[in-house]
Amino acid sequence: MTDVYTTDIALEVRELSRTFGVRKALNKVSFDLPDGAFLSVFGPNGAGKTTLIKVLTTVTVPSKGTARVCGLDVVEDAVELREKIGLISHNPLLYPDLSAEENLQFFAEMYGVSDVSDRVRELLVSVELDHRRMDLVRTFSRGMLQRLSIARALLHRPDMLFLDEPYSGLDPHAMDILDGLIAQVRHDHTFVMISHDLDKGLELCSHALILAKGKVVLFDSKENIDPDEFKATYRSTVGMGVA
C-alpha cells in the first residue's frame, strides 16, 4: 500500500519480531514509512508499542527480522543511527539536580556536538527558557520540563523524532505549547509517536499504525482512513492486548 514511496523511506521494518520464550512482544511487524511522515502508533497496553520504539531507537535488539531507520540498520549501524534520532518521552529524561543549561550541555557533549555553548543557547531561546537557564531542573513545572526535553532531543539535529506518549500528564496549556513546538519542527523531521489519545494522534499524523499483541492490525496513510471506522477497529483490539 505504501510501495509508491520507495525512493525516500525513513522507516523500513521487515518481519520484525521480538520474542522471549513464548512471549511475543513483537510478532512479524512489517511496514514502510516515507521520509517526512508523521506516524502515530496506537494500541492497548502490552501491545508492543514501547518495544517497537526501543528496537527502532537501538536500545534493544530484535530477535528476528530487520529494521532500517533513516537508511541505517538498527543492529549493525546502531552507533551512527543514534546520531540521527531523538526521543521525547513522558519522562523528562533530565537530571533534576542540574540546571537547564547544564543538562543541555551534558547531552550535547554526549552527542559530540561541535559548538556546544552556541547550540545550547540557541535551543534555550527557541523553547523560551533562556531566562531560566541557570535554574535547577527540579524547580521546573511540567510544561517547562517538556519544553526543555524537546530542546534536549533536538540538540544533535536529528532527522527523526520519537515521541513516547509526550502528552500524558500535561495540562491543556502545556499541551498547546507542545503542539506549537512540534509544529515548529514538523517540516524537517520524520515523527513516530506512541499515543493513547486517538483524537490527538489522528489529528497530527500522516500515517497510523495499530498494534495488538505485537502484531500489526492496521497500517495506512491518513487519506485512506475513515476516523469512525478507525476508532471501531482500535476498540476491538483493546480487549486483546492485556495478556
Binding site: V79, R82, I85, S89, L93, L94, Y95, P96, D97, F107
Partner: peptide, 18 residues
C-alpha cells in the same frame, strides 16, 4: 538511582556512546 530517577539512563543509552 540518580540515573534511573527521571529515566536519564534511557537518554544516556540513546546517545552514540559505547
Amino acid at each position: 538511582v540518580h540515573e534511573q530517577d527521571q529515566g536519564c539512563l534511557e537518554a544516556l543509552l540513546l546517545a552514540p556512546v559505547d
